[in-house]
C-alpha cells in the first residue's frame, strides 16, 4: 500500500494508528454502506432472486416431468414385454396345434394310401389267383386229355375192345380226383 495515500498518513500523526478507529470516517462509511445495502437489496429482491427461484422451480418441474415421462415409458415397456410374452406363448401354442394337425393329416393320408395300396395289392393278388387258377384248370384239362388219350391207347393196345371211351374217361377222372 505504498501508493499516494501514504504521504497523508505520515502527516496525520495525531490520528489514531488504526484507521478502523478513526471516527471521522464513520459517517461516510455508514452512509455508503446503507446506500450499498439498499441498492443490493432492491436488485436482489426485485430481479435476481425471483429469477433464480423461477429457474430453479422450472428445472424442478422439468425434472419432475421427465421423471413422470420415464415412469410412463417404463410402464409402457413392461406392457410391451407382457404383450410380447403373451404373443410368444400364443405363437407356441398355435405352432403346437399346427404340428398336431399336420401330423393328424399326414396320418390320415398315410392311412388312406396304405389302405389303397392294400386294396390294390389285394386286387392284384386276386387277379393273379384267377390267372393261376385258369392256368391250372387248362393244365389239368390238358393232363386229362393226355391221360384219356394215353389211357385209351394203353387200354387199346393191352386189351383191344375192352372198354369204350366213356368208361376210360370216367376212370381217369376218378383217379385224377382221387
Amino acid at each position: 500500500m505504498a501508493d499516494t495515500s501514504h504521504g497523508a498518513a505520515a502527516g496525520a500523526e495525531s490520528a489514531p494508528g488504526m484507521p478502523q478507529l478513526d471516527f471521522s470516517t464513520f459517517p461516510n462509511q455508514i452512509f455508503w454502506l446503507v446506500v450499498t445495502l439498499v441498492v443490493l437489496y432492491l436488485i436482489l429482491s426485485r430481479i435476481a432472486l425471483p429469477r433464480i427461484a423461477s429457474v430453479l422451480a422450472e428445472r424442478q418441474g422439468a425434472i419432475q416431468r421427465d421423471l413422470d415421462k420415464a415412469e410412463e415409458m417404463k410402464r409402457a415397456a413392461v406392457d410391451a414385454e407382457n404383450a410380447y410374452n403373451k404373443a410368444l406363448a400364443d405363437a407356441r401354442q398355435q405352432a403346437n396345434e399346427i404340428v398336431a394337425e399336420t401330423k393328424a393329416e399326414i396320418q390320415k393320408d398315410l392311412d388312406k394310401a396304405i389302405a389303397k395300396a392294400d386294396a390294390e395289392i389285394a386286387a392284384k393278388a386276386a387277379e393273379s389267383e384267377t390267372a393261376i387258377a385258369a392256368i391250372r384248370d387248362s393244365a389239368t384239362k390238358s393232363v386229362q386229355t393226355v391221360a384219356n388219350t394215353t389211357a385209351a391207347d394203353i387200354v387199346k393196345s393191352v386189351m383191344p375192345g375192352a372198354g369204350d371211351a366213356k368208361t376210360i374217361k370216367a376212370a381217369v377222372a376218378a383217379i385224377m380226383k382221387g
Binding site: 500500500m1 495515500s5 498518513a9 494508528g17 488504526m18 484507521p19 478513526d22 461516510n28
Partner: peptide, 8 residues
C-alpha cells in the same frame, strides 16, 4: 505499516 492498507 500493516494498518495503512485500511486507510480511508
Amino acid at each position: 505499516h500493516p494498518m495503512d492498507q485500511f486507510e480511508i
